[in-house]
Nucleic acid binder design. Structure first.
Lengths: 247, 247
DNA sequence: GCTCGGCATTGACCCAAATCAAAAGCTCGG
DNA sequence: CCGAGCTTTTGATTTGGGTCAATGCCGAGC
């Protein structure tokens, strides 16, 4: 759990100074799904001057719950897990963030949760103060954040329903289905389970053993077909949805 | 579960037309803790023209999950529960809102959850469209909403930790402690449990029997002292906090 | 004051998922 | 290519909280 400070960093400030060609932001592959989508090209230039790109390996801590909230991030590639812990070590993962997602929106002094990379991850980092200043000048960006906060809240409520009221089998079915839908956009053949069984368990409020059994069962019953331990395809969308106990 | 349409409503438009005296908003008792706190007096006037005051009895439905999101609300007095349901009737209450809280922030066409009054409740209702138009002209209001969304998100994450990883005893202790802290501000002697055991159970992901047993146990162990079924005082803050397994 | 009906408590029993234990696959350094 | 140390799977056993059942309590209406 090494900290992110010693990560491979690539500040864009130097690049911007050295002659005006296509900027990183303009050619950004995830721009269409990032917070940046709401910004005009000139605003993007402004954003880019405060951006630091980072490439992090798996298992790197971005920040811990309680740390002063100094940065905001957008994810470029890879995945981040957000989690809270109890003093005795019990952990609840509150969400997995994928390419295009935004991270660090905290209207408080400190982060309310910890964040750690799941696989190798590429991200953009913004200093909080300067990003907030940007908000003043670009109301569309603020709308975008409000909209994202709103859908995160909806997702959180859905997860509370899962944690409070669904059986183990239903939780795992819901999870596999949600992952499949999320990755359907990026149109690969199989769905990737980047995270370990341990992470899945801590996300679903179960143990690794229960997760493993439920996945095996879903495979045996033909709801999904496991390719290997970290890849599957949805074999029967209808029955998987039925097993998830929700739309 | 009658709908709110036939509620006692009091539009302020008539009042505003009939001579300029102190408006409802200006004398509002919860203004200091509502979204309205961020608004100047003149902006308040504007807000007031789109406000409908409503007084609702217990158990009244404000809206159901999936309904078109036509209104926003602030709570004046009383309490609202937000919840989601599965098709077979299992219910998860995702939050209780009290005086000063804001409700209906949904950047979507439809509500993502249902809302129902817990006790008798007094609230202000705004038509969504006109409220959103107001946002354009009052960026401070937008900041206020973003800030509220952000703290709701933090609360949701805390609740996920509770639902996913805490024992029944810890959940009930957490709930009692949070209620006590929330009501400490409004400085009464005892903490009121407005909601039924059924509601508490559906909020904590437990059954009424388990909630009842945990409350009795907390009482027997001297963590709290029950006054009657709907009132208690915190008898040992330290041990109650310890039993809740979190700060 | 009495009775009815809904909430809340208490008790007995059961089961889904946790825990404990061990084997089987991967993966990566040497 | 081997083997140490992981993650994952599978099996046996235990248990916290759910389920079922009964009783108690309290307010509303008669």
């Amino acid at each position: 759990m090494r900290r992110a400070d010693n990560a491979v960093e690539q500040s864009t400030e130097g690049a911007a100074a050295g002659g005006r060609c296509a900027t990183l932001c303009e050619t950004c592959r995830v721009r269409a799904i990032s917070v940046c989508r709401s910004m005009a090209i000139d605003a993007l230039d402004e954003l880019e001057t405060i951006t630091t790109r980072m490439k992090l390996p798996a298992g790197r801590v971005l920040f811990d719950e309680g740390d002063p909230a100094e940065h905001l991030f957008t994810i470029h590639e890879g995945a981040i897990k957000l989690f809270k812990m109890l003093r005795d070590g019990r952990r609840q993962i509150t969400g997995f963030l994928l390419a295009g997602d935004f991270l660090g929106l905290a209207f408080f002094r400190t982060y309310a949760y910890s964040a750690e990379t799941v696989g190798d991850t590429l991200l953009c980092r913004f200093p909080r103060e300067r990003f907030m200043a940007l908000l003043e000048r670009h109301p569309m960006l603020e709308k975008e954040l409000l909209s994202r906060a709103s859908s995160e809240l909806a997702a959180a409520q859905e997860q509370m329903l899962l944690l409070g009221r669904k059986s183990a089998r239903e939780r795992v079915a819901s999870f596999l289905l949600a992952l499949a839908r999320r990755q359907a956009a990026s149109g690969r053949g199989s769905v990737e389970l980047v995270m370990s069984r341990y992470d899945i368990a801590d996300y679903l409020g179960l143990t690794i053993e229960t997760v493993s059994r439920a996945i095996q069962a879903a495979n045996a019953e033909g709801l999904i077909r496991m390719i290997d331990r970290h890849h599957f395809v949805v074999a029967d969308q209808g029955r998987l949805a039925a097993a998830s106990a929700s739309g």
